[in-house]
Write a protein that binds this DNA or RNA. Structure first.
Length: 501
RNA sequence: GGUGACGUGACCGAGUGGCUAGGUAGAGGUCUGCAAAACCUCCUACAGCGGUUCGAAUCCGCUCGUCACCUCCA
């Protein structure tokens, strides 16, 4: 494996050459959504970026185990929130069982990311199914002296952990003293905590709390950050290769995950490479559920959001997301989406152009194809160079367009194909097809409406019939039959039915 | 207040010391019955000021502006 893939590691703040811990195996974990409401476009970026990452790793020959969790336990609105988590709240508001809410939105999420071209993760664990593992992790943390129980709740002791030299804040580049100085006066309801920096590992649940489980500390539910540490360890081991999510998860979520892993018997940073993708903004401001400036995925697909003048298909959305580097913010706007759509279609039309790249009959290949071959190979290689440089899909796509221009040129003047060797051409065409479809995961979306096309064919059929051009009538009838459609001439006019053969 | 990121042409968006980013939009041309697509050519750039350098969009400083995280968030 000589592919020099490098990835930016938040933990070291550097691009590093990617080396799996146990090649050819690669463990990847992506923090998935909390399923208390419908996902918005911003929520789609992580799955799409990590889908390309895992697709590319597989292309490079690695055996990937990709874990993407579903958070169905729910988080409290804030530390100070004594009451319900988000899922419970939604459930109560809609008079549903909490699991019903979680299930409904988890299903919707999966449908959405699937049409966005994301291959299903190898494992999609749910927090509610891993309470035992989470309790075990808490016990380890307590045993190691970094957790304490108060009144049925368990907290992670950040000062103790930090005093032990474990470096709380090393991922997000924060200093504990500054965090303490800067912490807001939001201590209401959390006087149980020894330090405002401590975070909950387990919370005591009162009787009206809808989601609760038994534990050594009584009835309760797991803390905010615990599930990912527990599930990552269960499925990817004490140390995995890549762990990622949105930039907004870096602190506190991922910072706490590392602390939990270090504080448990694992004693690891949980993952070697920590990847964070940037946010999607609307008019320059981060799209977020709390701000309310979000476009849901359904709204995007249906064009029912005021920001958008029309609907945009899943593949256009995917192309739009991949046209920027994952660590850059992307601003979504109608204009940008329209540009993305045209770009996407251009790339798709390229797939059909590949089939036309055949040397015309009777032409001889040039004796010296070296110059053209070199040029074509350079264009092909550029596409990979971009991807290898921290998964820069923007550069990859730009290079694909450059390659496509060459293909279009050849297709427009097939005789120029004599200048290039069969091998170089095949190599380039294969790379284009593979990168577009298998790595970037961009599939051609049929735009034509079958019903309308059928109507068109039938109108030609009628015209031919009226003109008594029976040869043409037969051709049309035969062609439709190929498609499993039989034409029926009735007194009322021309009709059709699916062939029963 | 603390920490970090960013400011690229009409729009989106790569690039981080010298070499075309790319897409969309716009202008002209080739092709075409007309178009579309495609190809060719062109246009609009690196927030401002100062510095380092033979040379800076790219490094440094200041100014202005924007954003993110510090509470759940992809």
């Amino acid at each position: 494996m000589h592919h020099p893939l490098s990835l930016y590691n938040t933990l070291t703040r550097k691009k590093e050459s990617f080396e799996p811990l146990h090649a050819p195996f690669v463990g990847v974990y992506l923090c998935g959504p909390t399923v208390y409401s419908e996902a918005h476009v911003g929520n789609a970026r992580g799955p799409v970026v990590f889908d390309v990452l895992t697709r590319y790793l597989r292309y490079l020959g690695y055996t990937v185990r990709y874990v993407r969790n579903i958070t169905d336990v729910g988080h409290l609105e804030s530390d100070a929130d004594e009451g319900e988590d988000k899922i419970s709240k939604m459930a109560r508001a809609r008079q549903l069982e909490p699991m019903q809410v979680a299930e409904q939105f988890a299903n919707l999420y999966q449908r959405h990311v699937e049409v966005l071209g994301c291959l299903p993760p190898d494992i999609q664990p749910r927090a509610s199914g891993h309470i035992t593992e989470q309790i075990e992790l808490i016990q380890e943390i307590i045993t190691n002296g970094f957790g304490y129980e108060v009144n049925g709740s368990v907290y992670f002791d950040v000062p103790a952990y930090n005093a032990a030299g474990r470096g709380y804040g090393k991922l997000s580049n924060r200093v504990v003293d500054e965090l303490l100085a800067g912490s807001r006066d939001n201590l209401a309801g959390q006087e149980e905590k020894r330090s405002p920096l401590d975070f909950a590992l387990w919370k005591k649940a009162d009787a009206r709390h809808l989601m609760q489980w038994p534990s050594p500390w009584g009835q309760g539910f797991p803390g905010w950050h615990l599930e990912c540490s527990a599930m990552s360890r269960k499925y990817l081991g004490q140390m995995s290769d890549i762990h990622g999510g949105g930039l907004d998860l870096m602190f506190p979520h991922h910072e706490c995950e590392i602390a939990q892993s270090q504080g448990s018997h694992s004693h690891t940073d949980e993952a070697r490479v920590w990847m964070h993708h940037n946010m999607i903004t609307v008019n320059g401001a981060k799209m977020s559920k709390s701000l309310g400036n979000f476009i849901t995925i359904s709204e995007l697909f249906e064009g029912t959001n005021a920001t958008l003048s029309q609907a945009y298909s899943p593949m256009v959305a995917r192309f739009f997301l991949l046209q920027a580097h994952y660590r850059s913010p992307i601003d979504i706007s109608d204009e940008a989406m329209q540009a993305a759509r045209k770009g996407y279609r251009k790339l798709m039309n390229g797939l059909r152009v590949l089939e036309k790249l055949v040397l015309p009959e009777g032409t001889e290949r040039a004796a010296d194809t070296a110059p053209a071959d070199t040029e074509l190979r350079k264009l092909t290689q550029d596409c990979f160079t971009g991807l290898n440089d921290d998964l820069n899909t923007a550069r990859c796509i730009a290079s694909l367009f450059n390659l496509l221009r060459k293909f279009n040129s050849y297709a427009a003047n097939p005789t120029t194909l004599v200048q290039v060797s069969e091998a170089a051409l095949t190599e380039a065409a294969t790379a284009y097809r593979t990168l577009v479809q298998d790595v970037l995961g961009l599939q051609d979306e049929p735009r034509a409406n079958a019903q309308d096309l059928l109507g068109l064919a039938l109108s030609f059929y009628q015209e031919a019939k009226a003109a008594k051009d029976y040869a043409k009538v037969d051709v049309i009838r035969a062609a439709l039959k190929e498609q499993g459609i039989v034409v029926k001439d009735t007194k009322a006019g021309v009709d059709w039915a699916y062939s029963e053969e």
